[in-house]
Design a protein around this nucleic acid. Structure first.
Lengths: 168, 168
DNA sequence: CCGCGTGAGTTTCCTTAGGGAACCGACACT
DNA sequence: AGTGTCGGTTCCCTAAGGAAACTCACGCGG
């Protein structure tokens, strides 16, 4: 398939996407973060091809998102643990989950998230780090930042936004 | 490739993933939400194969995430707009972007998000809908909810969590 | 000592989605 | 008539994904 490499694209979504956007990575991360972290358990739980699982795991380890640790000798047994970088993907999973619950959860969400600090079952809300209000597609704009540069994926974005989006 | 269908899996992440987790969908949604919404512009901006772009767009329209609208006759010109369901994917994009910025943005984030209501450039924070504090992998647990059922993807989750995760 | 079970991957073979690039029809502009 | 743009299709080829068998290292029960 020759997935076009997105790594060199300016947009951070593309960078994240490049790692995260295949059928399995998100599911693997969810399982690992929840405590399913041995090879066979993952294969069983996800129904994923073992070949692909091995490939994904080693990529995730290579990216520094997971670590592989031998948690017992005799017999040698390994498991995968999320690094800080890996745990930091949790908000992405929460956002995906919330969207899935909202738009496909006829019978109610299959799992509840409980926030241990306040003790309530809760829903993830994506908020402004500054004022705490919810962020939506309509109440935000994008501005080029310091790392902004030109390249596929942001190529014509400036001009296009300018021309297509009435400044109002 | 025969992507294993994830639609019938209990987990909402899987449902969302099924639509969202390919190399391009996230990028397409970002572009559309930002105002790049004509076929040729998308193809140019993303460097995506036109065949795949056509396929993705029609899937997204089929899923009710985008609509295709003729915005002028003479010459006939179409564009794609995000529905409510589509706009609601914005938090997922924000979460991805934040992760990418954090872990790959050596030179600073390529784009800034400005929250129009408070007027500040901001970062997306995923918070507890109840108390407003930030949600992390460490301060939350998952509990089976009303829609919970058994099937691939949640198959052995219960037992596994129970056995592997010390209740502390 | 032998066979069986388990964990953790590899290997093999086949199918099929994705990339590239050309092609197409409708219209407009000059 | 010739050139351009938009919005797609069609073709061929490659390589990634799926299924299932195979491997290797160990541990256990008899």
């Amino acid at each position: 398939m020759t997935r076009t490499p997105l790594t060199d694209v300016a947009c951070s979504i593309a960078r994240a996407t490049d790692l995260f956007a295949d059928a399995w990575t998100a599911l693997i991360m969810r399982d690992v973060l929840v405590g399913v972290n041995r090879f066979d358990d993952l294969a069983r739980d996800l129904g994923i091809s073992r070949k692909i699982l091995a490939a994904r795991l080693s990529r995730l380890v290579g990216e520094g998102v997971l670590t592989r640790e031998r948690y017992q000798e005799h017999p040698p047994r390994e498991h995968y643990l999320a690094t800080e970088k890996g745990k930091d993907l949790y908000p992405v999973l929460l956002a995906l989950m919330r969207w899935g619950d909202r738009w496909y959860g006829e019978s109610g969400p299959p799992v509840h998230i409980r926030h241990l600090e306040c003790g309530h079952d809760t829903e993830a809300v994506t908020t402004c780090g500054h004022c705490g209000d919810e962020l939506t597609a309509d109440n935000t704009t994008q501005l080029p930042g310091p790392g902004g540069r030109i390249g596929p994926g942001t190529q014509v974005l400036g001009p296009l936004i300018a021309s297509r989006r009435p400044p109002a």
